[in-house]
Amino acid sequence: MDTAENVSAGSLYKKIGSLIFRGSQYPEKETGSLPSFITCKSCKRRSTKAAWAENYYVCPECGAYRPVSADYRLSLILDPGSRKDLDPGLRAQDPLDFPEYKDKVKKQELKTGLKEAAVTAVGRIEGQRVVVGILDSRFFMGSMSAAVGEKITRAVEYADKNHLPLILFSASGGARMQEGIYSLMQMAKTAAAVREFSEHGGLYISILTHPTTGGVTASFATLGDITLAEPQALIGFAGPRVIEQTIGRKLPKGFQRAEYLYEHGFVDAIVERKDLRETLAKLLLLHERK
């Protein structure tokens, strides 16, 4: 698969401009002979796109992780040509008739080329068939809409029915406010689906990426048999700002980061992006049903 979202010709100039002058938040398509750099949000140093790409979009200078698209993640872990998308047509509804929501969804669609924040697919890792679901943080901060919950639930059900291991990458700002109670109910739906899958002996590997918060943390993301995290990822239920307001002081450095959760016993391993495919292949092998 392609490593980046499609950029329409009209927005191309703007995109390149933002790459050069401000640094885009996400990896972009190679743009021919134009010089392209990405500035690291963490160390503020610039590296060429090629250098970033070679380094799995981890800053070649300081090692800070950049968020990446669902497509990129799939290309990174699946055997080439093995990806087959599940339920590609599912998209956000507007159950509360919420002001401006439809327009906002449309903008997210245009920006990302996605129909929703969740991308689910069946594919192979080192020849082993798996179901993979990914929340793409570029789309509405990966927030949980009814469609996202439905897509994740269907992926779990597909894995259950076909006796396949399940791998879910979480990245979410939490609930989709504009869908109100319907968004909240996705926590129940996805958690129930994972519970049933687990009871039938299914393997679920949960991978927590930046940021995993709110309703996603409090549902399927924390119910894995194996829980992995990307370095530096923010992982928590309440957001840091809310906690600071509640307790009335600053949070310690590194609070709610993957490394912190690892130390506090909520994560089995922190896996670097470059090692992920290999780690997953090993875990799948160790869980192979004889």
């Binding site: 926590m187 129940a188 958690a191 129930a192 994972v194 519970r195 687990s198 943390t217 409090a218 549902s219 399927f220 993301a221 924390t222 119910l223 928590g236 239920f237 309440a238 906690i243 509640t246 307790i247 949070l251 609070f255 709610q256 506090h264 909520f266």
Partner: peptide, 18 residues
């Protein structure tokens, strides 16, 4: 709160749902 996070607020809620 801070301790609630350290003790796995998200996990505890998810576990109840499941």
């Amino acid at each position: 709160g801070m301790e609630a996070e350290e003790h796995g607020q998200g996990e505890a809620i998810a576990r109840n749902l499941a």
